[in-house]
């Protein structure tokens, strides 16, 4: 009652919002005309673009559909997938070793690790692949075997991509390890945990929280990056579609086949990353 009286005596325009008798006063947002306008413009442009893609017969969507699940394309996809998985696994194994070396107390190990990362990050991956492909020019025979027999295209692809990957993985893992609080290591030492146990049980699981997002980035980058091995005639996804369009000249639809597959796999990997991140975030405040 008394608040009603107050509301009546308060000036209408200025002053604090008074209780209007019907509970709390309603909040009226300012109109967002500009936002609506921008949204409409963008949607119209998108629709125009989609229309032109669908209506333009030169895209040859029927060819895309024909080859999308053809045996040679699927074989190429398979190779791309296992090459990516293998390179990631080997690259991160070597990268973790390099990161631990870089953080060790031994100045020689630190310098070697630094030098490795410096060298392999400086060298374009394409140059590296060509170099390994032609290694026979430097060493015609290795252990009594002809080098060209030893370094086939697939082997060269695995070696080149792994060495390249490891240099980046080393920095990602090192960043993750550095993100672990120094007190965690001291607590583990004070409890008498062995060096291996400290790494496996305390440091790396916590480092994983910072490692997973950039590692997910690298995985997706590697998936597409493996397409570079097409230059040394490894039959990955890209090379498989190239083989087709060299024969049929249907360049655009065949490139679309490869692109759509890359998009599909990338989407699946992104979804997987979400679950991996959630696993390693257990015990942290932000997940709860």
């Amino acid at each position: 009652m008394s608040s009603n009286t107050l509301a009546k005596t308060a000036p209408a325009a200025a002053g604090p919002p008074a209780d209007a008798g019907e509970g709390q006063p309603r909040i009226v947002s300012r109109p967002r005309t500009g936002q609506w306008l921008a949204a409409v413009v963008v949607l119209v442009l998108l629709a125009l673009a989609a229309n032109s893609v669908i209506r333009n017969d030169a895209f040859q969507w029927d060819v895309v559909a024909d080859y999308f699940t053809s045996a040679s394309v699927l074989r190429g996809l398979g190779l791309t997938l296992w090459l990516t998985a293998l390179v990631m696994a080997l690259g991160f194994a070597l990268g973790t070793l390099l990161a631990v070396m870089r953080l060790s107390a031994n100045p020689v190990l630190r310098a070697v690790s630094w030098g490795y990362v410096w060298l392999f990050r400086s060298m374009p991956i394409l140059v590296q692949l060509l170099f390994w492909f032609n290694i026979g020019a430097l060493y015609p025979h290795i252990l009594g075997v002809r080098t060209v027999d030893l370094f086939g295209p697939i082997t060269v692809a695995i070696i080149g991509l792994t060495l390249h990957e490891a240099a980046y993985a080393a920095e990602v893992v090192r960043g993750g390890i550095l993100s672990v609080d120094r007190g965690q290591i001291e607590a583990a030492q004070a409890l008498g945990l062995s060096r291996l146990r400290r790494w496996r049980r305390i440091i790396l699981p916590q480092a994983m929280r910072s490692i997973v997002p950039p590692a997910g980035n690298m995985l997706i980058g590697t998936l597409k990056g493996t397409s570079i091995v097409s230059v040394i005639a490894v039959q990955d996804l890209l090379y498989s579609v190239q083989l087709v369009y060299h024969r049929t000249y249907q360049v655009i639809p065949m490139l679309l086949v490869a692109t759509i597959w890359y998009v599909v796999v990338t989407s699946l990997l992104s979804a997987g990353q979400f679950y991996v991140e959630r696993h390693y975030a257990r015990g942290s405040e932000r997940t709860r």
């Binding site: 609080d181 007190g183 965690q184 001291e186 607590a187 583990a188 030492q189 004070a190 409890l191 008498g192 945990l193 062995s194 305390i202 699981p205 916590q206 390693y280 257990r282 015990g283 942290s284």
Partner: peptide
């Protein structure tokens, strides 16, 4: 490390393992 198992240490910032 063996010696340390006979000496308990409690830190100012607890240093519990957050993921366990």
């Amino acid at each position: 490390l063996k010696q340390r198992t006979q000496i308990g240490f409690v830190f100012q910032n607890f240093n519990l393992f957050p993921h366990l």
